[in-house]
Nucleic acid binder design. Structure first.
Lengths: 214, 214
DNA sequence: TTCTGGTGAGTAACTACTCACTCACCAAAC
DNA sequence: GTTTGGTGAGTGAGTAGTTACTCACCAGAA
């Protein structure tokens, strides 16, 4: 790990320090926002002087930008989902997406960082959002569109359908992680419920005809 | 409007001023967050001195609290929905909820204020959220539960179902108002799509049996 | 006069950011 | 082996500007 750290040296290598500062700063920014976090706090949390923070990052904003840029690791999830998609196993596709979002992919820091940066209007917010979420919508909308063509799904706007499914998941996390609403079901139950709701719909009996509109 | 304002007087009444300060401060807090907004900016936007702001509100936090407390006007929507609910017109119930959220009840200031206060961990956030949103969940969950008992809806967790519907709506607003995703459909189309998706489900044909789990 | 609405000019604390400087380490010159 | 000088890690003590908040004071209406 250490690039040129010696046994009793108290000095960390430049890269180590930089990574450490980024990690601690990310936690603070996620907790308190950009303007709500001071460079002094960051330095204290990273166990170094404020001056050193500015040795690594020219400005506070540059540090924030470095964090956002680092947190865009474009998930590998899609390749796994791909399999289920090829087999047209709708339930598995949506279950994987849901459980990834609700169970594994649940980095609260990331969610808070994303919301803060969007609310505070940081320039990198768009890129952050795009890479972090847009892919899901596009991929999912594409899948839904294909399943509609194949007659497996009703004729709906694919993008809107994708958003409503992702909306359930995003809202679920928002409620629990940001608004601290206590969970009254296990994550597995929630995933199952959301997927069932989306796939099967809530109305009993044969699907009613849509009220004529178009 | 003016309680005791005279014709050529430059002085506003205390209540007028207070309301004005609250309104301008709300807009600023919504745009930039609590820590991101300075009292100097508020005073300037309210066209008065900083000192006057502190004449009306002892601290910046007190001003913030006054805003949150004022923005809890417990919607009258439910009484309107009640009618449709009595007639068991499911589509109308959900359409009214959706269009209220997406079209009329769409005060971007409120949404941003709510998110900021939750993220920044303001004490009033909980109350704010509770009065502003909780009612919907509870009411909606109650309605869904009843419809399940009546055999009109499948057996699902009512609260989870309510959340997934509200989740679609909340996410829709989040996407457009916070993340600035451009709308590719009219609000009416979106409402219709979300309601249809929720009520009819997306899968074609007769509703498939749920994969055995419980 | 006596309120009430209103302010200019502060202040102590804090903010992001800078700078002159030390210290540990290492390699080559002696 | 010791000296020398160079280098990167690290800091204490600032600074200029900003922040929330205060106070003595003013003007006009009752």
């Amino acid at each position: 790990m250490a690039t040129k750290r010696h046994k009793n040296s108290k000095k960390a290598s430049g890269q180590e320090r930089q990574a450490g500062i980024i990690a601690t700063a990310a936690a603070l920014f996620a907790a308190r926002g950009f303007t709500g976090t001071t460079t002094k706090e960051i330095a204290k949390a990273a166990c170094c002087s404020e001056a050193l923070v500015f040795k690594h990052f020219p400005t506070k904003r540059a540090l924030y930008a470095a964090i956002l840029a680092e947190k865009v690791p474009l998930t590998e999830l899609l390749t796994v989902v791909e399999d289920a998609a090829k087999k047209r196993d709708d339930r598995l596709v949506f279950t994987m997406l849901a459980s990834h979002r609700i169970r594994r992919g649940a980095d609260p820091t990331l969610l808070r960082l994303l919301l803060f940066s969007a609310l505070e209007g940081h320039e990198l917010s768009n890129m952050f959002f795009k890479n972090q979420h847009r892919v899901f919508y596009d991929y999912l909308a594409g899948y839904i569109e294909q399943r509609i063509r194949e007659g497996a799904f009703r004729r709906v706007d694919p993008l809107l359908a994708a958003r409503s499914f992702m909306g359930m998941l995003a809202h679920h996390r928002l409620l629990h992680e940001i608004f601290r609403v206590p969970a009254h079901r296990s994550p597995e139950d929630c995933v199952e419920s959301y997927v069932s709701l989306f796939l099967d719909g809530i109305q009993a009996g044969t699907p009613t005809a849509r009220k004529a509109r178009a």
